[in-house]
Amino acid sequence: VEPFVCAQCRTDFTPHWKQEKNGKILCEQCMTSNQKKALKA
């Protein structure tokens, strides 16, 4: 199985991968920080 790479921070290690609607693969940490930024905006 090919390891995923986060589209935002380029890490290849995370407990959980998330896929955005646009198809980008993000690590759990980037997904969480993006959600917090969206709530602040």
Rank of each mutant, 00 (worst) to 15 (best):
K24M: 07
K37P: 12
E20A: 01
P3G: 13
K21A: 10
C30W: 00
R10P: 14
T11E: 14
R10I: 15
C30K: 01
E2M: 09
P3S: 14
E28P: 05
C27P: 00
Q8H: 15
Q35L: 02
Q29F: 05
G23M: 14
Q8W: 15
V5P: 03
N34P: 03
Q19A: 12
L39A: 07
Q29K: 11
E20R: 02
K18W: 04
P15F: 02
V5C: 02
W17Y: 15
A7Q: 13
D12K: 03
W17N: 15
A38P: 01
K18V: 10
S33Y: 13
K37Q: 13
S33C: 07
S33P: 09
F13K: 01
N22P: 10
C27Y: 01
T32W: 01
Q19W: 11
M31C: 01
Q29I: 05
Q19P: 12
C27G: 00
C6I: 00
L39M: 09
C6M: 00
L39H: 07
R10E: 13
N22Y: 13
I25Q: 09
E28Q: 04
K36M: 07
V5F: 03
N22A: 11
C6K: 02
Q29Y: 02
E2V: 04
T11W: 06
K18C: 10
K24L: 07
F4R: 05
D12C: 12
D12V: 14
T11S: 11
H16Q: 06
K24P: 11
V1R: 08
C30D: 02
T32A: 08
Q29H: 14
Q8P: 02
N34W: 01
D12P: 06
C9K: 06
Q35T: 10
T32D: 03
C9H: 14
C9N: 00
C9Y: 00
D12G: 09
G23T: 10
E28K: 08
N34S: 03
E20S: 06
F4A: 12
S33H: 12
P15N: 01
C27N: 00
K21V: 09
A38W: 02
F13I: 15
A38Y: 04
D12A: 11
K37N: 04
Q8S: 15
K24V: 06
H16D: 10
F13V: 14
A38C: 05
E2Q: 03
P3K: 06
K18A: 06
M31L: 03
Q35P: 04
A41G: 10
C6F: 00
A7H: 15
W17E: 13
K24W: 03
V1G: 10
E20V: 09
F4V: 11
Q8V: 15
S33F: 00
T11L: 13
F13W: 04
Q19K: 12
A41C: 04
F4W: 12
C27S: 00
M31G: 10
I25F: 06
K21M: 08
C9S: 00
N34G: 05
N34H: 07
E2K: 02
P15A: 09
C9T: 04
T14E: 08
Q35S: 07
K36W: 03
A38E: 13
P15G: 08
F13D: 04
P15C: 11
C30S: 00
E28F: 02
I25H: 14
S33E: 09
A41P: 06
L39Y: 15
T32E: 05
P3I: 14
A38S: 11
D12N: 13
T14G: 02
T11P: 09
M31S: 08
K24C: 04
V1M: 13
E20C: 13
K37V: 08
S33T: 09
Q29R: 10
R10N: 09
R10K: 14
Q19S: 08
Q19N: 12
E28L: 05
G23H: 14
F4N: 14
C9W: 00
V5T: 10
P15I: 05
A38L: 08
T11Y: 01
D12T: 09
W17P: 06
H16C: 11
C30M: 00
K40T: 11
V5N: 12
P3E: 13
T14R: 04
P15Q: 06
K18R: 08
R10C: 15
F4T: 06
F4P: 04
C27W: 00
E20K: 01
L39T: 04
M31R: 05
K36D: 04
W17A: 09
Q19G: 14
E28Y: 05
Q35A: 06
E20P: 01
K36L: 02
V5Q: 12
C6T: 14
V5S: 12
E2S: 08
C6R: 00
E20T: 02
L39R: 09
M31D: 07
A7M: 05
T32P: 08
K40A: 09
G23S: 07
L26T: 02
K21W: 10
Q35F: 01
F13A: 12
M31E: 09
H16L: 03
Q8A: 15
Q35I: 02
M31Y: 13
L39Q: 03
K37A: 10
V5I: 06
H16R: 08
P15R: 05
I25K: 09
E20Q: 03
F13T: 10
P3C: 14
V5E: 04
M31F: 01
L26M: 14
K36Y: 00
K40C: 06
C27D: 01
M31W: 08
K40V: 06
K18S: 10
G23V: 11
C27M: 00
K21R: 12
V5H: 13
